[in-house]
Nucleic acid binder design. Structure first.
Lengths: 124, 124
DNA sequence: GCAATACTTGCACGATGGCACAAACGAGCA
DNA sequence: TGCTCGTTTGTGCCATCGTGCAAGTATTGC
């Protein structure tokens, strides 16, 4: 796609950090996992809960079958949104705050770069 | 349930932004729109393109029917990821950098608050 | 061993989503 | 007016998704 160079490329202070390319940060799996209302409800529950929660506990926040909760949590874990820890017969889930915030901010940074960069042919 | 009296200290950067509750920021529509590989391809194309692009131009970046591109762009616009402008019979699309980065960073901030807040029952 | 608990997996079903193709729409132009 | 071009909408097909129910697995307690 043709690109013009109307504005000269600006160099923000944050550009000192090394950036990942935009394509790598636009991860369909993470967004897909966050694209379901029930899953978001479960994630929000885990976020607000000030501790690790069992599958049954998380399931208490929405009115779906426990098997559905189990599957949704597995999906969220595959996407890196939550992490799990097994202890005997119970599984504890917790929000992966670090991974989530890092992913979101890295993407925001990459988008900022793209918005500022006016170099023709630059892949950001 | 809602405890708003005591909040943990925030970093200066995050404190500068006004906070919305986590639930409001976990928008299924935006994430759902970003959850499809083809749509992400179109969005990435728009991001890297240093100008507004027509539907046909954006469609050039992936191998799907133009009608599909049109629908995908409409979906992205409904989610606030892109914006459009009609000029005669052509429609120009551009990435909504501001909206995207604001959404992502606000969510990251809210998640940070949640992660720091260890008050049981707090709704962050 | 046996039962209870905590969770996962198999399965069926309806809903939704992505896609291509064709047709329609609407603006510009001869 | 009729034509072309850029885009949208209608339609049908097929794959995937979300869900509940039932059965299975694994661990704990009696």
């Amino acid at each position: 796609m043709a690109q013009t160079s109307k504005k000269p490329p600006r160099t923000p202070a944050s550009a000192a950090r090394r950036r990942a390319p935009l394509d790598r940060l636009l991860d369909p799996e993470l967004f897909r996992a966050l694209g379901d209302p029930t899953r978001l409800l479960l994630l929000a529950c885990l976020c607000k809960c000030a501790r690790e929660c069992t599958v049954s506990e998380v399931g208490g926040c929405c009115d779906v079958d426990l098997s559905v909760v189990s599957r949704h949590l597995a999906t969220l874990e595959r996407a890196g949104a939550v992490r799990s820890r097994r202890e005997g017969r119970t599984v504890f889930y917790a929000a992966s705050f670090d991974h989530l915030t890092t992913s979101l901010r890295s993407l925001a940074d990459a988008l900022d770069d793209c918005a500022r960069c006016r170099t023709p042919g630059c892949n950001c």
